[in-house]
Design a protein around this nucleic acid. Structure first.
Length: 427
RNA sequence: GGAGAGAUGGCCGAGUUGGCUGAAGGCGCUCGCCUGCUAAGCGAGUGUAGGGGGUAAACCUCUACCUCGGGUUCGAAUCCCGAUCUCUCCGCCA
């Protein structure tokens, strides 16, 4: 959510932003409703002023034994008028909120203008793509041949877009989770948290999933709860409606959670393998910072995510999302894309964003500067560190051998109980 | 699931015969004074949001907010109804 005053006083900037984002929202609707709301508001407030004043007079008259019945009768009319305006006003307010909630964040000035992912510039690449000397195969074939991924039985259990990991596959997923958590906690200095995997609608509104992206979420029937689509939601909302102290900042959290997404609208896309699932594991990094620090924090957050791929020796590249591809709440996003030889392409494995004060305003996450009056909104950031299932995909495809086995990356061997290679479900 | 208690400012905690209470008191915090340092002490200040005025500052003024949403009333933190959350006891259960 953007600042109401900012929207009001910078309509040209908003319009430019909307067109850069390929968003067809009509701002003039906002402008007319906003004007209407302010007119009603000042009318109501002056009536309330009158009512408060006369109520005091009535109290004084009663105290001194005077008859106040004629004034009371008059105030009765004023009161009912106030009530009428209140009703109208709350309708207007609701409409206005509805519009404000659908205006996306302002992209940072460094974000390139573009229409879709084809316009995302690659800003760096890391690692060497080696010739294997044989034709690499996609991870779903590797996994099924080794008996560590079973998509047929998964669909018996839950349908399409679910996976069943078996034996060494299951252990590898768990090893990746632990390796990522340990690295972020011990090396990068994050605080580990384990949040609820379902949250109420206030949290979903706070981080921007609601009201605009309802169809992407799984809702619990009969409850005000949703399965989380990312740990960003519960972890960012940890400090919802709080006033933090300046010396508490920055706050760095890392959380492992499963993520649940309906993937509405992605029918026919990535139907094979682990890439696009209704349930997947993710280790997420979340930061709260002072406004002046958030751009540095974004660079470091991205570097922390990249470090996992470096330690696993997986080739990757980093792209900056252009305005047309940028997410609703984000001001700037780096996508980290890992190399998948089995499919001969780069695939998103992490998305690192600075949301500036956009989420903080919705979620009312503020801080108080030492010695200064008043409060300010914090900046929130987050990024995958990394998507666990896709990391497993990258390991299978990059470390596959000619004989069908898969070498375990050195950094993961201790997490696999010493296992150096996977040649069957039980290896 | 059954029975009860409660939700007030950054925190603790008054206020329940409705009206000068945005809210006593304390803690914390900020600024100043004092003390050789520390501790203690003294004085002043200290909520949020939204309007309007003023040069964008200081400042002035209005409105709202005592969990949330309704209701009663000229007027509600205070009365009534509903919701949510917390706590205690009983039952049940991992």
């Amino acid at each position: 959510m953007l600042d109401l005053k900012f929207i009001r006083s910078n309509p040209d900037k908003i319009r430019e932003m909307l067109s850069n984002r390929k968003n067809d929202l009509d701002l003039s609707v906002f402008e007319s409703i906003d004007r209407e709301r302010r007119e009603m508001l000042s009318r109501m407030e002056s009536l309330r002023f009158q009512r408060n004043k006369v109520s005091d007079d009535i109290a004084a008259m009663k105290k001194s034994g005077q008859d106040a019945s004629s004034v009371i009768a008059e105030m009765k009319k004023v009161s009912s008028e106030i009530k009428e305006i209140e009703t109208v006003l709350s309708g207007i307010q609701e409409k206005l909120d509805g519009i404000i909630m659908t205006i996306p964040n302002m992209p940072h000035e460094s974000v390139p203008v573009g229409s879709d992912e084809k316009d995302n510039p690659v800003i760096r690449t890391w690692g060497e793509i080696k010739e294997k000397g044989f034709e690499p195969i996609p991870h779903w074939e590797i996994g099924e041949r080794l008996g560590i991924l079973d998509f047929a039985r998964a669909s018996k259990l839950a349908g399409a877009r679910f996976a069943l990991y078996m034996g060494a596959g299951s252990r590898l997923e768990r090893a990746i989770i632990n390796f990522m958590l340990d690295t972020h906690v011990r090396v990068h200095g994050y605080t580990e948290v384990l949040p609820p995997f379902m949250v109420n609608s206030a949290c979903m509104t706070g981080t921007g999933q609601l009201p605009k992206f309802k169809e992407d979420l799984f809702k619990i029937e009969g409850w005000d709860h949703y399965l989380i689509p990312t740990a960003e939601v519960p972890v960012t909302n940890i400090h919802r409606e709080e006033i933090l102290k300046e010396e508490d900042l920055p706050i760095h959290y890392v959380a492992y959670t499963p993520c649940f997404r309906s993937e509405a609208g992605s029918y026919g896309k990535d139907t094979r393998g682990l890439i696009r699932q209704h349930q997947f594991n993710k280790v997420e990094l979340v930061k709260f910072s002072r406004p002046e620090d958030s751009w540095d924090e974004l660079e470091r957050l991205t570097a922390d995510a990249e470090d996992i791929l470096k330690r696993l020796e997986l080739p990757y590249r980093v792209v900056t999302l252009c305005t047309g591809d940028l997410g609703f709440s984000a001001s700037k996003t780096y996508d980290i894309e890992v190399w998948l030889p089995g499919q001969n392409l780069y695939r998103e494995i992490s998305s690192c964003s600075n949301f500036t004060d956009f989420q903080a305003r919705r979620a009312e996450i503020r801080f108080k500067r030492k010695g200064a009056a008043g409060t300010e909104l914090v900046h929130t950031l987050n990024g995958s560190g990394l998507a666990v299932g896709r990391t497993l995909v990258a390991i299978l495809e990059n470390y596959q051998q000619k004989d069908g086995s898969v070498i375990v990356p050195e950094a993961l061997v201790p997490y696999m109980g010493g296992t150096k290679a996977i040649s069957s479900r039980d290896s």
